[in-house]
């Protein structure tokens, strides 16, 4: 196996996850953390939680967007290298949920950045989150392959 194939394979099999709490109530966040712990063990899919946006392939966002953190969210998203996938965990991230009517809430995170996978639930169950992340990994694979084709065309 050449180096290129090796990198390609590891990329598809081990997406790195960045988690950002975007004015969530913590419910979904602790469930995401629970996904990494022994019972649910996200790492069996090769997913590792990282703290640096530049290392991450999948962005997991919980909670609604407010006026102060929309800049932060956009900033984090822009720093991630292509290809990238965004997973919105919980109803708040999808639509604003129970906080929808609060004055400082903009709504779902798709108002600020494009979202690929929505995971419903209040809070989303670990099983649902893992399912969502697995879907995200597949979308990432697709995006990666599309990118490769685009590069070939540009050559």
């Amino acid at each position: 196996m050449g180096l290129k194939e090796f990198v390609e394979k590891s990329f598809k099999k081990s997406p790195w996850v960045l988690h950002y709490n975007c004015s969530s109530c913590n419910g979904c966040d602790i469930e995401i953390l629970a996904c990494m712990t022994p019972l649910y063990d996200m790492e069996r899919f090769g997913m590792v939680n990282v703290g640096n946006p530049k290392h991450a392939d999948i962005l997991v966002v919980t909670g609604t967007v407010n006026h102060k953190n929309k800049e932060v969210l956009k900033n984090i998203y822009d720093q991630m290298p292509e290809p990238k996938v965004v997973v919105a965990v919980g109803v708040c991230a999808a639509t604003g949920g129970i906080f929808r009517e609060a004055y400082n809430v903009l709504g779902g995170i798709d108002k600020v950045i494009p979202v690929d996978v929505y995971v419903p639930g209040c809070p989303a169950k670990p099983e649902a989150i893992i399912d969502g992340l697995y879907k995200a990994a597949e979308i990432l694979k697709e995006k990666y392959e599309k990118m490769g084709k685009a590069e070939e065309v540009l050559k």
Binding site: N66, N69, A102, V105
Partner: peptide, 30 residues
Amino acid sequence: FGFVHRGLEMLVQKKDFNQMVYVVDHICGI
């Protein structure tokens, strides 16, 4: 601060006192 500020105390004007139970439950998930 302010990255999590939603303005939940204000929701009392929009939800009645029974509905507010669920709002205060979502102040913190822990």
